[in-house]
Design a protein around this nucleic acid. Structure first.
Lengths: 200, 200
DNA sequence: GGCCAACTAGACTAACCAGTCTACTTTCCA
DNA sequence: TGGAAAGTAGACTGGTTAGTCTAGTTGGCC
């Protein structure tokens, strides 16, 4: 029939894309058949590229982790920098993809502890460390109160997404991405970590 | 054999307990057979009490939700009250049970949206509202800066558990419950919401 | 004693799933 | 032209699952 082998190599890519969507929408429980159908590929083709469902899942997760990382650009003043970071961070973490990755890994962490650990370290942990580095510099330059930068980063990241992520996870409309929230959080954080100004 | 009908009514209770443990440990995917075995009950008995696996799951979740609520006792000064709340809140949310409930509902929210909504409203939402009520009072009494108490409650709850809950969800050792963390967070929060003292 | 309500064991259906295997087709390249 | 590489369809194995059904057992109560 018209089942032409359209492109020799990128069946793999279609497969990864399809698996990504499928896992995102239905979790790990989605069947190989459904993934294959979504990629318009025979089941055997899946096993030509990946030795098992687990391996395919791991590959998808590895890709997904990369897509939720945010960098800090520290050229302006502290408030401006943190505000820009906040917007970007919230946009990624609270996006449908960000929520879905979080949900899937939360659900499967007991089954795939190594993958969960990798996600934790390459995702939230990495973001927190970058943030802490920036905050440490700001502290040394006197733009922030001297304190434990890791703790400060943890607080800041928590304030930015905790509750809204919960809303997203529980499938409630997220009222997302209204910039007011970022600004509110940044100002709250800056009040808690303002430099001690009482030098008489 | 020795299969005496030991107690006529509380087979149901044993069943609920077993289901609670089973769902907590293995998630919704655990089979009815395993739950029945754990309760030392025949499979048919499960269906005598609950029309379906879904119904049993819903019942277990409803019970579990209640067990993660924390109250505020507002007799001392603000810092003391918040500190006591923090300890209790962290102990519950970050306990194995708290993590397990969170994980299971996160995983199954797409499948059981009504249950997820109920969890959100009766769990985190309720806690946040109680907290906001207390904070609003403290603000009016001049013990805290005047601000949106809902926002303040959200920030406080986020700071208390966000990162540690993530660690728990990803199956990493939690370094849990060291009281230092609560104090650190409370002081951070109090810095951000200290009353304006510059009245010349 | 006799009945009822609840429990038990276990067979059974119908469906689903991961993974293997076979036989066939298509494309490309040498 | 001819063969290797990759894809396809579909049968098949062995396992699991939710839920139903049957037949038998037990205990309490009148």
């Amino acid at each position: 029939m018209s089942a032409v082998v359209e492109t020799p190599q990128d069946a793999r890519q279609r497969l990864l894309d399809a698996a990504c969507e499928a896992f995102r929408e239905e979790g790990y429980r989605v069947s190989i058949d459904r993934i294959a159908a979504r990629a318009q590929v025979a089941r055997q083709t899946v096993y030509n590229h990946f030795p098992s469902k687990e391996a395919l899942f791991a590959e998808v997760v590895r890709h997904a982790i990369q897509s939720v990382l945010v960098t800090l650009e520290g050229d302006g003043d502290v408030r401006t920098t943190l505000l820009a970071f906040s917007e970007a961070y919230r946009a990624k973490v609270l996006s449908p993809d960000g929520i879905a990755i979080f949900r899937t890994l939360t659900a499967e962490a007991p089954r795939f502890p190594a993958l969960a650990k990798q996600f934790f370290r390459q995702g939230p942990q990495t973001t927190r460390k970058r943030l802490a580095q920036y905050l440490a510099r700001a502290m040394q330059e006197g733009n922030l109160k001297k304190a434990d930068p890791d703790f400060a980063a943890e607080m800041f990241a928590a304030m930015l997404t905790d509750f809204d992520r919960l809303r997203g996870l529980m499938n409630l409309q997220t009222d997302l991405l209204k910039p007011a929230k970022s600004a509110q959080v940044v100002d709250c954080f800056l009040r808690a970590f303002a430099p001690e100004k009482d030098k008489p």
